[in-house]
Write a protein that binds this DNA or RNA. Structure first.
Length: 529
DNA sequence: TCTTCCACATC
DNA sequence: TGATGTGGAAG
């Protein structure tokens, strides 16, 4: 995505600001430019969230895809992401329990098309699907647990089925998206959503992608085939391939081996190479190892949660080398202080990490600064308990929460724990809950708290994220971009989340669909069940 | 564009 | 060995 921005016509900028900033609304991202020192607010760290650092596993692979313009297949049944989203988290209090979750927010409000070997805007985006949160199945777990090994979200699935009952994240084809990671400190009930709940959000610009029902750019196809073990059957450079190809194509043998045609995954050149870049800015611009900080302070949990709404612009679009902006100033500062340790980056790189990647094998990149967790914001309370899951990780099921604007404060652990034990339960989802397409932006004024958050939380990723300068050479490889974290304390009262009905569906996920309506700054949400 | 089916791979 | 994850091709 390096140029994806360009290529995709990516956004110019997200509206949101750095979450750290307590301010309410910043409509202009510019204010968060890189050079801006970390805001005082960001400096303050809420409840120890400031020291948390997140490193994207296999960032090199992500960057390769990003440079071409990452595409993720979405199917009715749900499709995993590849590269899979795995992170290494450091700086957590070993004894404190945290809930890790992901959501995927719109990168902008455009619909894209792929023609002439490049992505271009073809219209306005369709209304965003109900936002859903994917709660890591190990949640809640102690900092020691999360830090012990890579945190993998590889089981997260993407679907284009608006009525998806499995809790998969619903996306629109030919639209751009940005995955986000949220780290939430579990409250006394092993949940979050109560006042003072602290959390931080991390965004890795290179993980932005365009959802498709079939690959558009053959370079992406080749990268997937070459790096995804499950696609190994499509690799080939020997006679087997010729036979296979002949068979598949119904052609007489011989057939030109794919190998002769495909480009090296790593190859820099591509037909489109000149232009093709990822959705984001150039790789160089992207990475810097910053650690993030969390914000903190002032904003209420709700704000955080509300965060980014439905869409914001992806980072980096047109950053020019050298010109990195940053929204994530806060992060940077920290990085220098904290990241120098060099743990961000591991020497080893591996194209594909297995399900149980060992640390040390991967190459990590610090997350870029994140906007506020939109998904979190309005989620109903998510209750998590140690119980069944804590020990039985393998058995745990991921929980999905959906909502246009989920709020963390809304989540109550109790309910979560309650339902999760049952494998597969999902909340009956209403297909189309009342959903506000782009609350924060479209309707919410600065005045509203939500909007404020939204802005703060979802800063123009493109601009900020992509450009973070590296802070310390030691800390991370150039490729590693900085990551920004926003942390805040949840101020809103804890609400109990509606319980899911166990009987529902497949065992893999719990889905909560929440709908948030932003009004007067106060988000309202409801869980569909 | 999307859905479905297929062969082939991993797990 | 069966379940599941892949991209390709056909429709």
């Amino acid at each position: 995505m390096a140029n994806g921005g360009d290529q995709f016509g990516l956004a110019e900028r997200p509206d949101s600001d750095c979450m750290d900033s307590p301010k309410e609304t910043k409509q202009e991202n510019s204010s968060f430019a890189l050079n801006s020192p970390a805001s005082p607010q960001s400096a303050s760290s809420p409840q120890g969230m400031e020291g948390i650092k997140v490193f994207l596993h296999d960032s090199e692979l992500w960057t390769k895809f990003d440079e071409v313009g990452t595409e993720m297949i979405i199917t009715k049944a749900g499709r995993r992401m590849f590269p899979s989203y795995k992170v290494k988290v450091t700086g957590l209090n070993p004894k404190t329990k945290y809930i890790l979750l992901m959501d995927i927010i719109p990168g902008d409000d455009h619909r894209y098309k792929f023609a002439d070997n490049k992505w271009s805007i073809t219209g306005k985006a369709e209304p965003a699907m109900p936002g859903r949160l994917y709660v890591h199945p190990d949640s809640p777990a102690t900092g020691a647990h999360w830090s012990r090994q890579l945190v993998s979200f590889q089981k997260l699935k993407l679907t284009n089925n608006h009525l998806d009952p499995f809790g998969h994240i619903i996306l629109n084809s030919m639209h751009k998206y940005q995955p986000r990671l949220h780290i939430v400190k579990a409250d006394e009930n092993n949940g979050f959503g109560s006042k003072n709940t602290a959390f931080c959000t991390h965004i890795f610009p290179e993980t932005a992608f365009i959802a498709v029902t079939s690959y558009q750019n053959h370079k992406i196809t080749q990268l997937k085939i070459e790096n995804n073990p499950f696609a190994k059957g499509f690799r080939g450079s020997d006679d087997n391939e010729l036979h296979r190809m002949a068979k598949l194509q119904g052609k007489d043998y011989p057939v030109v081996p794919r190998s002769t045609v495909r480009q090296r995954a790593c190859s820099t050149g591509s037909p489109f190479s000149g232009e093709s870049r990822g959705l984001r800015g150039s790789p160089e611009a992207v990475g810097s190892p910053y650690s993030c900080e969390n914000g903190l302070n002032g904003s209420s949990p709700q704000e955080l949660l509300n965060a980014p709404p439905t869409h914001y612009t992806l980072p980096h679009p047109h950053l020019q080398p050298g010109q990195q902006q940053q929204v994530y100033h806060c992060t940077k500062r920290k990085v220098e202080e904290n990241c120098s340790s060099g743990n961000h980056q591991l020497s080893y790189k591996k194209p594909f990490t297995g399900s149980s990647p060992s640390e040390g094998e991967s190459y990590y990149r610090l997350s870029s600064y994140p906007p506020p967790p939109s998904g979190l914001s309005n989620n109903p309370a998510l209750g998590l308990t140690d119980s069944p899951y804590s020990s039985d990780m393998g058995q745990r099921q991921a929980c999905m929460f959906a909502g246009s604007e989920p709020r963390m404060d809304e989540l109550s652990c109790t309910s979560w724990s309650y339902t999760c034990p049952i494998p597969t339960a999902m909340t009956p989802v209403e297909p189309y809950p009342p959903y506000t397409p782009h609350p924060p932006y479209s309707s919410s004024p600065q005045g509203s708290r939500l909007s404020a958050i939204a802005h703060q939380t979802s800063p123009p990723l493109g601009e900020h994220i992509a450009h973070d300068p590296y802070q310390s050479q030691n800390s991370a490889p150039p490729s590693q971009s900085s990551q920004n974290i926003h942390s805040r304390q949840l101020s809103s009262p804890l609400r109990e989340y509606p319980r899911y009905t166990p009987n529902l569906s497949p065992p893999l996920y719990h889905t909560l669909e929440t709908h948030t309506h932003i009004r007067c700054g106060v988000p309202e949400w409801s869980a569909a069940s």
